[in-house]
Design a protein around this nucleic acid. Sequence first.
DNA 1: GGCAAGCATGAAATCGTTTGTAGGTCGATG
DNA 2: CATCGACCTACAAACGATTTCATGCTTGCC
Lengths: 329, 329
Amino acid sequence: MPVTIKDVARVAGVSPSTVSRALTTPALVQAETRARVERAAAELGYQPNRAARGLITGRTGNIGLIVPDLTNPFFPGVVKGVQSRARESDFSVFLADTDEDPTAEAGLVRALSKQVDGIVLCSPRMTEEDLRSVIGETPVVMLNRRVGQIPAITIDNVDGIRQAVAHLAALGHRRIAYVAGPRLSWSNKERARALRTTTNAAGIDLIEIGNFAPQFAGGVAAADLVLAAGVTAVIAYNDLVALGLLNWFATRGVKVPEAISVMGFDDIVLSQMVSPSLTTVAQPQEQIGRAGVDMLLQLLEDPDRAAAARRELPSQLMVRHSTGRAPSN
Amino acid sequence: MPVTIKDVARVAGVSPSTVSRALTTPALVQAETRARVERAAAELGYQPNRAARGLITGRTGNIGLIVPDLTNPFFPGVVKGVQSRARESDFSVFLADTDEDPTAEAGLVRALSKQVDGIVLCSPRMTEEDLRSVIGETPVVMLNRRVGQIPAITIDNVDGIRQAVAHLAALGHRRIAYVAGPRLSWSNKERARALRTTTNAAGIDLIEIGNFAPQFAGGVAAADLVLAAGVTAVIAYNDLVALGLLNWFATRGVKVPEAISVMGFDDIVLSQMVSPSLTTVAQPQEQIGRAGVDMLLQLLEDPDRAAAARRELPSQLMVRHSTGRAPSN
DNA sequence: GGCAAGCATGAAATCGTTTGTAGGTCGATG
DNA sequence: CATCGACCTACAAACGATTTCATGCTTGCC
């Protein structure tokens, strides 16, 4: 027996339509009537039934959020950002986790699309083809990937890499390795490309190793290859991989940063929790989420003007204890 | 122009009501008609409008999930469990993060309650009073807390502590410390209580330290107190705190496990990523989430019979490298 | 003072589905 | 051959809101 608009109407002594107007289009109703309606609504604790409203307006007040794997510590920060920004605009968030299955993504988008006004697609792994077909059906904003004119939030990988290389160069490193992430990952391609041009310009030798899974185990798997490459520093695709390297170096007895410097990417919370703490390029995770929702809401307001929007957020070098002067062998 | 039940009806040559029955109550319609309807629905790609259905049935097909802080690595596992179990039963999940604000919890529950059939409340920090008022309005299942007859999933803290103490006792430890978590936390109270009785029975001295925030920083803050207590082993409220201890011990040059053994609670993924890797009592995070949804769905089916349900899941000692024989000083 | 214009309000249609009820067909039975 | 039941199916009402349209009233202007 929830309280409906009719109950409010009866108490306020007006018709249901007036109640609706008073609450959604206040300008259309006389101040005194509006006050009576508001008082009645407050008194009864009225809350509009979203399903009923959605039925006629075609809007749900929900947005969908799809992430590859919540247990990857990069994503929870993004989710929090999405969450809090959405709540500010009275939107609720449907969360779905694809378990790193690229083929499940498109299906999930389609399933969700009926229940939401738009979708935030975080680090999508699906093919461009799937992507294009999916965005034809629902408003979508991508995070951490850029494909054609699709609305997207990315971070400035090029500048992040520039900061990282400058840091290592200043410490005297002349030969560094890159442990590559997933071959299909847009971020990985960006970072690898930026590394090539930057190291080239700085006269630094770059050894590319990989591809490896963007996880702790990937770093462990790559560690011995890194050692064999005879470098004085290594940049990993992301922090998890870097942590895997650190861990394996520790068991091998390789001193970090004395024997080799290690850098990551992302700045997940863990990177401060290990010793030595990890030097890394921070991505503003929460801000990425917030920006994604911002853009999505604009897109819903005005599909034409905002459709081509793309935004790039800055990344920021965090110097900690896993990097140091190059050994002078 | 989404395809509605009417379109299906037209194509199948029957009335809308028959389509509805054919899809939701197949027993009520002739096999041949049903087949025609199903064919038409498949052909048009019909998907029922959940808002419209919810309007009349009063059910939304959604459940709400409220967690204190997604960036605490314990929770994402639970969220994944909730997620996947919900999807199996065609439920969608609304996620909300309270940012560790106990006063925000009740409000969030109330806000969500209009849009969901029930709510999974993960590790709620709110007062018992708020809790009782809230569960009067919506079906709720709690995780990691037990209050009266409220449906809840918990893990067997007592047995977990028993395993931990037995492990340390077998390694020769006779004086151990407990770094306590939040004073208001139900889990913390459970663990502290179990520790007292277990150590007492085993003739082990227990030094309680704290309370501390259940985070990395909490462990860092507690580390020197632990050293001053003159113990050979320490059990932390959870893994994050244990990682803080490990980190501070490392910078202090205190060898783990040679000088002191460290144990955690939870088995978050990070605990395998540090060196030494962390001995801990594992909680089946995903399973907790799944069990919570299981119980919630039962509750929705049959409020009376399931109302008093409570379930306790086993915990499991994971021995790694942060514990070893007590120093023989 | 009369008429047009404008504004606030109410009545009713609508969104897409489910569901109670009535009607219609068919077979079997008396 | 008529009647009764069983079984399907169609019709229509309902869910709770928004929104179009119509109406009555006030107001302003000539």
